[in-house]
């Protein structure tokens, strides 16, 4: 249970947009995910969370770093080995429609992964496809339909079925419910959780929605502009957020009851661009506790006990004026 399935070390991915400017979408990120757990990854748009998911799967080639899945170095594989490796790691996309070929019906879409890897004859694959459809909650009579004929929820179920077809160990869920109606979101989330239990899956669950992440994750990473700000177990994070950014995020979660008003922490300053970041903490321009050294040095993740890591120089110094 506590064996790490996925290990990411010092992952860097930057995009060169011109001779002088580069966007550091993922800037020296390291973490591990244990077998069977769901690691949530939250942050604003542009913090690099989507890029991380694709970089880990090598859909985007990282610039440097290491990705180890079940003991195998993913980044060192040859193209042929990589194709085989893909059977073990899959992805569910945010946009349920665009991720499906509009000219293929459900049967063809779900059988595609099995056809690619030649996992059986036509009949066998068709049977497996029907089983998968049943597993994700699609009725068999839908097999001849096309994506444009279906709603977002059903299309996302197709996406999930495709990801499961090869019986992977690890799945990157890239904002899988962000594009869906709220009522459908719950269905899909429950489906993902059920599947995780049944098939012993490990998830990296990426989202900008803290409430969703809280529901499904066991541990959570908070990212900002390409760097990790805080890592903690779910309950620990929500009860005891240490990083100023995490505190601001949590204060923004809408509360359903009328009297339990939360004190809203507003972030000042503009959202900086992740282009050619200056030295120092990434959050410095919007942090209400920023001191001189925050501009100079990039803080490292320090262990605060209980698997709770925070990257904030003020905290490490133990000064007042933060969190506590």
């Amino acid at each position: 249970m506590t064996k790490p399935l996925l290990e990411v070390y010092n992952l860097v991915k930057h995009f060169q947009i011109s001779k002088e400017a580069a966007v550091f979408a993922v800037d020296d990120v390291s973490f591990t995910i244990n077998q069977g757990e769901t690691l949530g990854l939250v942050g604003e748009s542009g913090c690099g969370k989507t890029t991380i998911g694709r970089a880990i799967l090598r859909l985007i080639p990282p610039n440097s770093g290491q990705v180890v899945l079940g003991g195998t170095d993913v980044l060192a594989l040859s193209p042929e080995e990589l194709i085989q490796m893909r059977k073990r790691m899959q992805i569910i996309f945010q946009d349920p429609f665009s991720s499906l070929d509009p000219r293929k019906n459900i049967m063809k879409l779900i059988s595609e992964p099995m056809l690619i890897h030649q996992l059986g004859g036509k009949k066998e694959i068709a049977e497996k496809t029907y089983k998968l459809m049943d597993l994700v909650g699609l009725t068999a009579d839908l097999s001849g339909r096309f994506p444009h004929e279906l709603d977002g929820g059903r299309c996302q179920r197709i996406g999930i079925a495709r990801a499961l077809a090869l019986k992977p160990e690890f799945i990157v869920c890239d904002e899988p419910v962000s594009a869906l109606d709220v009522s459908i979101q719950a269905q899909i989330l429950n489906l993902l959780q059920d599947l995780q239990q049944e098939m012993n899956l490990t998830y990296l669950f990426i989202s900008h929605n803290l409430a969703v992440v809280k529901h499904i994750s066991s541990r959570i990473i908070v990212m900002y502009l390409g760097k990790i700000m805080e890592i903690a177990e779910k309950d620990e994070l929500f009860d005891n957020p240490l990083h100023p950014y995490t505190q601001a995020l949590l204060s923004a979660i809408p509360v359903p009851t009328l009297d339990d008003k939360r004190e809203r922490i507003f972030l000042s300053g503009d959202v900086p661009t992740p282009v050619n970041p200056p030295p120092g903490c990434r959050f410095v321009k919007r942090c209400r506790f920023a001191q001189a050294e925050c501009f100079a040095e990039t803080p490292e993740l320090t262990d605060r006990g209980n698997g709770h890591f925070v990257a904030c120089s003020q905290l490490s110094k133990g000064f007042g004026g933060c969190a506590q």
Binding site: I83, S98, S99, D101, P113, I116
Partner: peptide, 14 residues
Amino acid sequence: NSLFVEAARALGST
């Protein structure tokens, strides 16, 4: 450059 091509790639297509 479309998403479904990327999806096919993620499934291990050549």
